[in-house]
Write a protein that binds this DNA or RNA. Sequence first.
DNA 1: ACGTCGATCTCGAAC
DNA 2: GTTCGAGGTCGACGT
Lengths: 255, 255
Amino acid sequence: MLNIRSNLTMSEAAELLEGAFRARNLVIIVGNCRVEYEGRASSTLEWGERVTVIKKDGSILVHRPTGYEPVNWQPPKCVIAVNQVDATVLITASRANPRETLTIEFKQISLTAFGSLSDTGEFALYVTEAQMKQAILAAPSLVEEGFKPLEEEKHVEDTGFTDIYGVDKTGFLVVIEIKRNAATKDAATQLYGYLEKIRTRVDRPVRGIVVAPDLRKSAQPVLQSMKIEFVKLDPEKCFKILKSTKDMKLSQFIS
Amino acid sequence: MLNIRSNLTMSEAAELLEGAFRARNLVIIVGNCRVEYEGRASSTLEWGERVTVIKKDGSILVHRPTGYEPVNWQPPKCVIAVNQVDATVLITASRANPRETLTIEFKQISLTAFGSLSDTGEFALYVTEAQMKQAILAAPSLVEEGFKPLEEEKHVEDTGFTDIYGVDKTGFLVVIEIKRNAATKDAATQLYGYLEKIRTRVDRPVRGIVVAPDLRKSAQPVLQSMKIEFVKLDPEKCFKILKSTKDMKLSQFIS
DNA sequence: ACGTCGATCTCGAAC
DNA sequence: GTTCGAGGTCGACGT
């Protein structure tokens, strides 16, 4: 249930918002405001009409009429306060760690809408880098015939993780770096770091393969000089394989 | 001026939104919806109450009741369409490059608010990396005594730009990489790329210095192995210097 | 158009 | 708590 008001006086707005924040409602305000921010950086935004959204977890967004990104904002866990100062409504949002404060001053408010939204719907994102990895583990031939993954993740001291670690059909070690998007040269340099570490520990050839849907032109010479191979793999193909393996698992249960 | 309606029927909503999009209004919708996204990745979001904002530049945000980030979105330049399908309102936002589509299906709408917002207020952000650079150019001793910047930017083939390029008091070349936040190892590797290029062209010693408010622990060994130096510099200090140089300039005009 | 890099990045996971 | 890497990153700037 939404409480909607338009063209309120500043004192009406201040009182209403006070109650909405106390009830931890989601709050939408459209009005003419000025914004100041002080924290990791500092900023000022002069008067103008914007959309402000304040959520129950203490996150805040101030949106101008254009652009995907909020002009000013605070991440969750802010403490919100409302004050009426003369003919303006002041909303302050403060948080510790890092210490920062966002201040929004309204001189005119066209709309306030607040209430408790009920949202339990599941969100699912398909074909992330992690899922491409699952697909390769489910169908190693996506990389090449005879490839056998060893451990899902092999920790390499000081340099993080490899994506997949395995052996090829001739017994050479294979280290695979997966990228969901076209591989840039830092994919290569990252992988090269792993390879160097591993080669000091292991007494047999180690191949490095970048697996990605595409290869940036600038990355090509880098790969070549580092003797790192490239295997093309589209996320869509991974999705199909994941779907089919899921179906297989399901059919095993059914049968 | 804002057109505000609450608890509309789906056909009312479809008609109103149609007009709002044609007029390139900013549109706010609160209601129970389902969302699908298909493009660089794919996602589905099941039924739930959310806040949707659609801007005149074709950017879209779908916000759940918690979290700073939109659960689904589109950057500017989308083509928006509304359709009534049975008892639901369908909003589709498509863009090319990359080819992707966002579909929002409403089965209940608590609020629509739309109109043209007037926002010309200036936005100013203080102490960006660019401003730290300005501060160093204004006060080179921030880096070290006797440092002289040469050109503001020195293009290095294929690798982008250095931040500052200069000479130290002994005549050695100095290449500086500025970071606004604690320097990570990629600051070092980035700078190392520049240095390698320059060293093939120049016949005298070239020093590399990372200037940042802090240095991540993991970056320290990388810097050491690359023989890159670190100079601590806080954005706040840069801000003070910029302010004082501005004051100086101002006082020059005044006097 | 593509590539590179900064960001009040945010977010999550690992240590 | 800090550190580190990923992101449908976005956005800006240069080629």
